[in-house]
Design a protein around this nucleic acid. Structure first.
Lengths: 226, 226
DNA sequence: TTATAATGATAGTATAACTATTAAAAATAA
DNA sequence: TTATTTTTAATAGTTATACTATCATTATAA
């Protein structure tokens, strides 16, 4: 028996659902691997097609262009993190404990999950950390937003912000703090690996424990009732 | 009489110092305007050359490529913010007051300064907000870092982190908090303008007051001695 | 089995990101 | 002031990217 998680994403993100065919799943799988390896700028559909022994034209039948494919991958990740949070907080009452699990889920998202056979979670997380914000730092962000391309991220943030408000209803910026937790998590892993003078934490051998401790420290200070 | 601020940047960032010639200053001036208008991806040296009535080849004599030009602009901005902070905190003793001025300087950086005749600060800030992180989110970040391309940012962060430690020597993550102040400042202005559901603040007509208040709120909570 | 859809193979266009060469103009030094 | 050097402009060319179009082939579904 095997369980397969099916992540559902906005239909506008693709021309043909990549989850429904071998070629589609290959596109997802190998685009993650290639982008994680050579970076988003050097990545293109020709290289991807060569890797999966298909053609550029075939890849274009699934995704409008590489920018939208990136948004797809990022949305997939956000949905996956939301899924992890939901199952891990299922029986938890205490909101502070819930937030702890949320923070831990950012880290846990790097563990490979056999229920997602065509996604290497560890590589995908690396991609998110180094390329993720390029998904929404584009000149046409408003049009893309109108098409609902960022809904998954917004829903995830809303979920976290609600927990923040539960912990301390008087805290004035629950949404900003929720987005900040994500951004900090990604940024400081990146800084620790590449620009260590921009952070206080270390991540030896991709052990993100210090990042987790830091985020909880920030949460405690910010959400203390004083 | 006129005062002209000369920002000094790492020599590795350019092939010929753009501050030393009319063409060079034109490159700086118009690259800011064009990138702020059409975004970094659509920007290229041909469009820039057309705008300043020069040629692609001439632009290439100043900058290796558009990525390095972006780092130059971003570094220029960081140096400028550092300069603003220094003159505005000159006679201030109280570190909490200093941090308030630092936070205010992020906002103030958008005011046009006649002492920098070839830089439109307001446009440059918009560029930093929407494209800034692309300067260091590149596959060759380590090599660029080795060449000292990000020193200006690091120095600025160090200066802010020192103030943070002055306010509360027991605070465990002064550097992370300093970088976070910058990132939050930029991100939440961007979110307020493009993805409002990712923040709690509003920036009507580029009035960044709410962002300033939020950052000070975070600073107070985080640096309170408890 | 036939129709329909998905994929592959191939070709072509416009633009980007450079590099090279030579001539003209501008700056500077003798 | 002229001669020399440096900078810029004009032009052309190369390789790669980001697509689009067409048609043949293969898989799938009715």
């Amino acid at each position: 028996m095997s369980v397969v998680i099916n992540i559902s994403l906005n239909e506008g993100l693709f021309l043909r659902n990549p989850q429904d065919s071998v070629l589609g799943r290959n596109i997802i799988k190998h685009s993650i691997l290639i982008i994680a390896e050579i970076g988003f700028e050097a990545f293109n559909f020709k290289k991807l097609a060569q890797e999966i022994k298909s053609t550029e034209a075939s890849v274009y039948r699934y995704f409008e262009n590489k920018q939208v494919l990136l948004i797809y991958l990022v949305s997939w990740y956000w949905e996956y993190v939301a899924f992890l949070i939901k199952i891990n907080t299922l029986n938890i009452e205490d909101p502070r404990k819930k937030l702890e699990i949320i923070i831990n889920s950012f880290v846990f998202a790097a563990l490979d999950n056999p229920a997602t056979p065509y996604v290497d979670e560890s590589k995908l997380q690396r991609l998110i950390i180094s390329e993720g914000t390029k998904a929404y730092h584009t000149i046409d962000v408003d049009e893309k937003n109108d098409k609902g391309f960022f809904l998954n991220y917004k829903e995830l943030i809303k979920m976290v912000a609600d927990v923040v408000s539960e912990i301390n209803p008087n805290f004035k910026y629950p949404i900003a703090f929720a987005t900040n937790l994500f951004e900090m998590s990604n940024n400081h892993i990146y800084f620790a690996n590449h620009l260590p003078r921009l952070t206080d934490v270390k991540v030896p051998k991709n052990n993100y424990e210090e990042v987790e401790i830091m985020l909880n420290y920030f949460a405690d200070k910010l959400l203390a009732d004083n």
